[in-house]
Design a protein around this nucleic acid. Structure first.
Lengths: 231, 231
DNA sequence: GGATGTGAAGTAGTTCACAGCC
DNA sequence: GGCTGTGAACTACTTCACATCC
């Protein structure tokens, strides 16, 4: 076997969450014409220590050069490989309100192998309109084949939409509704909840602790989302 | 000193991120007319173990009843206190595109003490229109007094907006733009990045690991956002 | 010289297992 | 009997410190 492919050393969950940030930083430097970066610089931009950066990157194999840091091109490429960006992921979005529209139109959402497969909504005003190069379909239509389902509907409709997606053999859901949903084992649900971020910020404001207070040098920010398992 | 008020046992970061979820669960039961819940049930709904739930809640003082679980009313109230929901937080939102609109109109964003103070945008088409009961102001206007600033502008404008907010004495920022920003020490920045959630999902899809694979019983979901410190 | 990559140490968070109370 | 609250054990992640290589 070649030594290059399949270095599937399994990455830790915190590492996986940081890699996209490092990649974005690398691309930023690339755009500005810079070719090398060191762990110290990445760390400052990402808000973590240089050691953490090095350990995270070491998990992808040897990709730095002792004494000279990392080549931003190599860096970006290897992170992409590790995260599986060389594959294509078909994404369906259900619920084309402001949020759904924001996601579809964002230059930052459907990237890195993720491509839009279809849009659905129930509102007759919205169905038939074209957004992001796709005509919005009625939710009553059969659901197209896809790998990832994005739920942007009001809480009351979230479970039903999730059920439809699971029936359509979609086993990775991104749920933006403030609604805990239940799915069969083997289906992954990631929750994105803006209000939780806000609440965490409020807690720290209220307590003078954490990222706010003067104390800490590297204010490690906090992530949120919430998981679920099946019944 | 009284034993009740100011049980400021400092909570761990993961705990803080889970409390809003527990609270939402409690309110869901309340709405359905149920009055008691146990750690097992909360855990199943939140996607964590019962032990974790109990340890999290123990941090708020004694609020359960041995043998009988938790009173959902008390639960919701105490979590609210712990997170500082009894105070009011003025929020300004800059960038009233689809995302800004989605946030302001969401029934889930400006809750629990957070209240909208002002909206800003640069687009003359948008300035002057009314959204969520507030007239959108031009960004050139002086920034109102507020506790939290929400950044929903394109990446290229993010740093400038952040600078404006910091000048206006806003020290807690929620950044939805895919742009790493720099702020003085003492200012907290939380990043919300949809694409990172999607990328984490893609990683797991690609590796059959984590929340997806059959193995784990409680698929612990993963949070994202990213922190930063100053220069 | 300078920055990576990594054993070893330290810290934080989770899970076990059970005593304590209703 | 049942479920909470918690010391003790364990696991995971981070940080230190330095040998290693360019």
């Amino acid at each position: 076997m070649a030594t290059t492919r399949l270095r599937a050393r399994k990455l830790s969950e915190p590492t996986i969450a940081r890699l996209p940030v490092y990649q974005r930083i690398a691309e930023g430097w690339l755009r500005r014409g810079l070719t090398r970066i060191d762990s110290q610089q990445i760390g400052e931009l990402a808000g973590v220590t240089a050691t953490t950066v090095r350990r995270d990157l070491a998990g992808l194999g040897t990709l730095g050069t002792r004494g000279a840091g990392y080549d931003v091109n190599v860096l970006s490429e290897r992170i992409g490989e590790a995260l599986g960006h060389d594959r294509e992921y078909d994404v369906v979005v259900v619920g084309i309100g402001n949020l759904g529209r924001a996601l579809v139109n964002s230059s930052n959402f459907l990237i890195r192998g993720a491509q839009l497969a279809a849009l659905y909504d129930v509102d007759p005003e919205v169905v038939g309109t074209e957004i992001g190069g796709h005509v919005v379909r009625p939710l009553s239509d059969p659901m197209v084949r896809a790998t990832v389902g994005v739920i942007c509907v009001p809480p009351s409709a979230a479970q039903e939409v999730a059920d439809r997606m699971v029936s359509a053999d979609i086993h990775a859901l991104l749920n933006f509704s403030a609604q805990v949903i239940t799915v069969p084992l083997g289906t992954a649900v990631h929750y994105v909840d803006f209000s939780i971020e806000l609440q965490i910020l409020m807690y720290h404001l209220n307590n003078g602790t954490g990222p706010l207070g003067g104390g800490l040098l590297h204010s490690l920010g906090i992530a949120t989302a919430n998981p679920l398992r099946s019944s």
